[in-house]
Nucleic acid binder design. Structure first.
Length: 567
RNA sequence: GCGCCCGUAGCUCAAAGGAUAGAGCAUCGGUCUUCGGAACCGAGGAUACGGGUUCGAUUCCUGUCGGGCGCACCA
């Protein structure tokens, strides 16, 4: 796409009084393919050229008309509409995808590192559907950034410290009826829920929880032992889920990791003259930014969330020397991030803009807020398991023509379930809240992950049945239908889509692109036979199909969704 | 009370300041002796409300209403 835009810009720029870069950037896609493939709106030039925009468009038209890849130029009002020749588009994009393969749309290493902090579940609580967004948005961003030449460091900032551990420890000591070796997360959850319930009427329990947490901080052997076991069994579940989701982290540095750095951080803040005392606590005043103060140290001397986050941020900058640090954390914590980013900036002005909060809307239940405390949660593992079950049902009903080999079913069901769940999560703009709905989360029809996977699997099937590799090249003039053209225009658009997704930190761009491409291909192959066409047409269509298969596979990979060959 | 986010079709969501606001689900009607029907085609149906900026606003600014979230010793 850039190639065509640049060439058009080169001939138009001198006559439009714009730089080539600006002109190329102004080129857009018309709303209807019948109008053309690229459009240049002339409104903005009316002032500088002191001419009616329609007249400008008419004046510019002849310059584009001469280009060899241009099939037709039309002036529609103030728009200059350009139709590219299908042959030119095909010879531009199909060989490139063939050559680049899964690297299509990628960029060379740029020697910049990005730390991505994502997933970060709270330990001692089960992994809920609420953790899916951070996990998959973070993973998708990592994949996008890698594709675009960044080096990424995935960090799982486990919530493995804090008073909630005090609650579980206190609860376990009070009611625990299992040996330590036999506790698992759900058992811990029961304790946690019961503790919260009883603490409502019994204030002494809260004090007990605080006391256990103090013991833990003080290095008490028993508290330490409990903490280690609770942490490990929770992590076990999380790792199981990450394995299913195909998510990996370079570092599992949780909050506890920073415990021995907290005093340094506080000293550093003090040295910078940022700490002031307020109501017995140590805070950084942010009045000048019209924000509430950032609490660093409690009146009893204990540290807080912000202290640990500051320590982690400093550690990351010093250890990884990243260009940016992304925090994929829910929108409710926005204020917290604003505050502690400002503190970082005060500590070192060069850090301004280095830290980014990638916020997202939360999952809610139709019945109300999701909260582990009340036991009002949907477990991630249940969603995955039910997804697999539903995939199996659909697979059994489907008339698939016996294309699946023995023993593949289980794996495919898992892959398709993931496709439904993960794609459903990523295809929506991350800033919006989501009301969790079983039917919607496990939808396999229409605008869904399975639809994209299905289209890709059908392409794989066609290529298998063809019994031949798609040829390296073909007579591109055979790709003459509007459906083929539409598909190719989308293929051309893929690289800029990935860039836009990475720039906006919104994997939903890529997800929606994948749907568009799958739909466009669906139209094409329902209307035009590939294998049954005459050899020249067949070869060209095989190339086109292979290219779509490649791009869909890349898109799915960028989203962290498996790509089944058959389903 | 103050602050942030979100209001688009019956429902769930799209839309790089651009042309006639697109999909899916659901509903109704079609394709089908098929390269695998988790498919394809068609129909109806929408920008919460009022100002402003702009040649042009779903998009930017502002006010109202509605929903969500947050606002000091939790994370």
């Amino acid at each position: 796409m850039q190639t065509f835009k640049r060439k058009i810009a080169a001939v138009l720029a001198p006559h439009a009084g714009l730089t080539e870069e600006k002109l190329a950037a102004a080129l857009e896609t018309p709303p209807d393919a019948a109008m053309g493939d690229l459009a240049f709106p002339c409104f903005a030039l009316a002032k500088t050229l002191r001419k009616a925009p329609q007249a400008i468009a008419a004046d510019l038209a002849p310059h584009v008309r001469g280009l060899d890849f241009v099939e037709e130029v039309q002036v529609a009002g103030a728009y200059l509409n350009v139709r590219l020749s299908a042959r030119a588009v095909a010879s531009e994009v199909l060989p490139r995808i063939r050559r680049d393969g899964i690297a299509y749309g990628s960029q060379p290493a740029r020697g910049e590192r990005v730390v991505v902090d994502y997933s970060s579940p709270n330990i001692a609580k089960p992994f809920s559907i609420g953790h899916l967004r951070s996990t998959m948005v973070g993973h998708a961003l990592v994949e996008h950034l890698k594709h675009l030449g960044y080096e990424t460091v995935g960090v799982n900032h486990l919530g493995d410290w804090g008073t909630q551990f005090g609650m579980v420890m206190a609860g376990f000591k009070l009611w625990g009826d299992r040996p330590l070796e036999r506790v698992d997360v759900r058992y811990l959850l029961d304790i946690y829920v019961r503790f919260n319930k009883e603490a409502k009427d019994d204030k002494a329990l809260e004090e007990l929880a605080r006391e256990w947490f103090r013991k833990l901080e003080g290095g008490d052997a028993e508290a330490r032992k409990l903490w280690e076991v609770f942490r490990e069994v929770s992590l076990e579940e999380a790792r199981r889920i990450y394995a299913r989701l195909g998510v990996e982290f370079q570092h599992y540095t949780g909050e506890s990791f920073y415990n021995d750095r907290l005093s340094d951080t506080i000293a550093r803040l003090k040295q910078a003259g940022l700490l002031v005392e307020s109501q017995g606590a140590q805070v950084v005043d942010l009045e000048a930014h019209k924000l509430p103060p950032c609490l660093i140290q409690k009146s009893d001397g204990a540290t807080l969330y912000a202290t640990r986050d500051l320590s982690a941020a400093i550690y990351r900058v010093e250890t990884f020397q990243p260009a940016r640090v992304l925090y994929v954390v829910g929108a409710p914590q926005k204020l917290h991030f604003q505050q502690f980013f400002l503190v970082l900036e005060k500590l070192d002005p060069a850090w301004a803009g280095k830290f980014v909060h990638v916020d997202f809307g939360h999952y809610r239940l139709a019945e109300g807020k999701m909260a582990t405390r009340t036991g009002n949660v949907v477990f991630m593992e249940d969603v995955l398991d039910r997804g697999v079950e539903m995939a199996r049902q659909i697979m059994e009903q489907a008339q698939r023509g016996g294309d699946l080999e023995e023993g593949q079913d289980a794996q495919v069901c898992e892959q398709v379930a993931l496709g439904a769940i993960v794609f459903g999560d990523l295809s929506n703009d991350r800033v919006k809240d989501v009301v969790f709905d079983w039917e919607k989360a496990l939808d396999f029809k229409g605008d869904t992950g399975p639809y994209v996977q299905y289209t890709r699997a059908r392409i794989a099937s066609i290529l298998r049945k063809g019994g031949v590799e798609a040829p390296e090249s073909a007579d591109w003039s055979q790709l003459s239908t509007p459906e083929e053209k539409a598909v190719m225009m989308l293929l051309l658009k893929f690289p800029q889509t990935v860039e836009a997704a990475a720039a906006a930190l919104k994997p939903s761009f890529t997800a929606n692109y994948a749907l568009d491409l799958a739909r466009a291909f669906g139209r094409f192959y329902n209307l035009h036979p590939v294998l049954k066409s005459e050899p020249a047409v067949r070869d060209a269509r095989l190339c086109l199909s292979a290219a779509v298969g490649t791009v869909l596979a890349i898109a799915l990979r960028l989203l962290g969704i498996p790509v089944p060959e058959r389903m």
